[in-house]
Design a protein around this nucleic acid. Sequence first.
DNA 1: ACCTTATTGATAATAGATATCATTATGAAG
DNA 2: CTTCATAATGATATCTATTATCAATAAGGT
Lengths: 141, 141
Amino acid sequence: MKDRRNTMQRELTYEAVFSYPGHPSADDVYRVISSRYSTISKATVYRNLNSLYEDGRIGKVPSVFGYEAHYDHRTDHHCHAVCIKCGKVVDVDVQYDKDLFDNAVSMEEGFSLSSHDLIFEGTCRNCGNKEKGYGTEGIKD
Amino acid sequence: MKDRRNTMQRELTYEAVFSYPGHPSADDVYRVISSRYSTISKATVYRNLNSLYEDGRIGKVPSVFGYEAHYDHRTDHHCHAVCIKCGKVVDVDVQYDKDLFDNAVSMEEGFSLSSHDLIFEGTCRNCGNKEKGYGTEGIKD
DNA sequence: ACCTTATTGATAATAGATATCATTATGAAG
DNA sequence: CTTCATAATGATATCTATTATCAATAAGGT
């Protein structure tokens, strides 16, 4: 593993992800930390989220549909759903045969597959309610 | 369906996607059209790719891992692999039980799932060769 | 205490895509 | 054919998420 020094900033980043209810974006993490440690830079948060992910200490839900990436205190492989309206990420509980996909092959010669992601799309409660005109602007996730 | 007027630009966009070998990005499409119709604007290409997709005339492989979206002359639901080095998209032939996923539910109350994408990650021939130092800069996909 | 270098904070830069807006041109109606 | 409302265009500015740059700081082994 890469040589890392222990910094306050990285530990705060780790703790913020770990204690966040759900799947924080980099900006969510930044805002949480800022409240306690106001001089932290957003670049530092991005760097530390990446290094924590590299070290396997946190999970990462990569950016899809142009939305931000989200982070996860769970590090095991599981499925996520992304809200197509706002990019919110939630867990999905679905059992399937991973081996089937691990043995899939691409249709192009020379393209070697390494992994797969099963990503669900949908509408989160907040965005779904807005659509129906329930006037739920105030709902916080 | 939305009221659309027939324009040369939109038909050129459609033809470019349809005749492109593989999965062109918006920029790929733009470059193809530019060679014949040099005054077309990139904004127009983006707009037309979106409207053609809305109308179900072309397929769209959404942006993942921060890479550009790609377009597809196939409009049926099938799987893709994305090169984690360069973002290239290729088809993957894998059979699976779509119903299983269509019946999955999110772990958060109020989040309603509408569809899913099975996305593979890997390394395309070009990037894979580069890695091994085969000096294949010139390979064109 | 010293010194190498990982890390930081501030900021600029990047990529992909959308928003804006004055101008153009489509195509239905007269 | 003209007329005309408005969809579409081209040029450009703007946006968002993220990474790159770089001088200054600080971690931690010696």
